[in-house]
Simulated assay, not measured.
Amino acid sequence: MGRLQGKIALVTGAAQGIGAGIARAMAREGAAVIAADRNVAGVEALAAEIGAEPLALDVTSEADWAKAAAHIDAAHGKLSILVNNAGVELVKPMTEHSLADWRGLMAVNVDGLFLGCRTFQALLAKGGSAGHPASVINVSSIAGLVGYPDQLAYNTSKGAVRHMTKSLAIEWAAHRLPIRCNSVHPGCIRTPMLEMAVEGWVREGSIPADDPWAAVAALCPLNAVGLPEDIAMGAVYLASDEARFVTGIELVIDGGWVAR
């Protein structure tokens, strides 16, 4: 306990799933957590549960990001940890992707990450030092490492997250800014987003309808579906000073899925 004591953490997409898991873990480890989401009721409920500060934030809105930065600057004067977790998924063949589908997904999964990192660079620099850099954690996916059918927009967006992370890690280091940047790549984690994807896989016949979760678990070498807490503990490590020499990496937490 206390691995993040004294740190200020902003977690996007915190109303449910992996984002909620990360927010809970960081609060337990002593961080002052700002839990952000466009689902205001959901994030307020989480904040009340864990003693965090709720923040209404649509990651596609440049104005919302600017308001968030002004608020955190006034309240804290710095930011130690930024977790860009907010994301959406689309499961259907490429020929059924409309341009509006494509652009809407990219706006959340890619533009939102860019806006967050750009908006908070100055506050992150204030929140870090040469020996204790601030930490940016971008939640990608194993779909950003390998291809999956009928997820073209999602796969592409998560590949962009991976490469943006590496580019920012090198850019901030080149400019001597005390900010580390790493990506986390979850495998099959039991979240509302994965439940939606599994429903799509059942409809297309990729997995059986009678026991789809057993089929998903069987695809993993550990024969299990992960939980948000599994990802959260990786994020805690990357956010902590234990990882002060770690930047530009991709932390894969997938039960061995992409290893075979």
Rank of each mutant, 00 (worst) to 15 (best):
V139T: 14
C188G: 15
V198M: 03
G205A: 04
V136C: 07
A36L: 04
S140C: 00
V40Y: 10
L222P: 03
A215K: 03
A243E: 04
E171V: 01
P178I: 09
A173N: 06
A217L: 02
Y237G: 11
G17I: 07
A45W: 02
L105G: 01
H163I: 15
L4N: 06
A63I: 06
V236F: 00
S140V: 00
K7Q: 10
P54N: 04
M94T: 14
I170M: 15
A169P: 00
V161S: 00
A239M: 03
L194Q: 08
A48M: 14
H71N: 15
D101T: 04
I72A: 12
K166R: 14
V59Y: 06
R162T: 15
S80A: 15
V161Y: 01
Q5G: 09
I170A: 14
A75K: 13
G248K: 07
N182H: 05
T119Y: 00
A20I: 13
A25S: 10
A86N: 02
T165G: 00
I34N: 02
C188S: 15
G256F: 04
H71V: 15
G187R: 09
G131Q: 13
K67E: 09
V136T: 03
G127A: 10
T156V: 04
I249Y: 06
A169Y: 00
G112R: 02
H71L: 14
D37I: 12
S98N: 08
A14D: 11
E195F: 09
D111H: 02
N223Q: 07
R103T: 01
P149N: 09
A122Y: 14
A41R: 15
V110L: 00
R244E: 08
N84K: 04
A56R: 09
T119V: 04
M106Q: 07
V83L: 07
T12N: 12
G19W: 05
A173R: 02
G147R: 03
M1W: 11
M193G: 11
M106V: 05
A15K: 11
D58V: 11
V43Q: 08
Y154A: 05
V59W: 06
L113T: 03
R3W: 09
V83I: 13
E49N: 07
A47K: 12
C117V: 13
L90H: 12
N182A: 01
A122S: 15
E89S: 14
M196E: 15
L222R: 10
I249N: 08
T247I: 06
I18P: 09
L4P: 07
L79W: 04
F245R: 06
K166L: 10
A100V: 07
I50P: 03
V146R: 13
I231P: 03
A100P: 01
V202H: 03
R260Q: 13
G255C: 06
V91C: 14
G131I: 09
N39R: 05
E96I: 14
G2M: 09
P186T: 05
W201I: 04
S140D: 00
T95L: 15
A215P: 01
R24S: 02
S129W: 07
E29K: 08
A48I: 12
L99I: 13
I18L: 14
R203A: 14
G19N: 12
G187I: 09
L227C: 13
D58I: 11
L4F: 00
E242C: 08
N182P: 03
P178F: 05
E62F: 08
R38Y: 11
G42W: 01
S61L: 03
V161K: 00
S141V: 04
W172K: 01
A218S: 01
A74W: 08
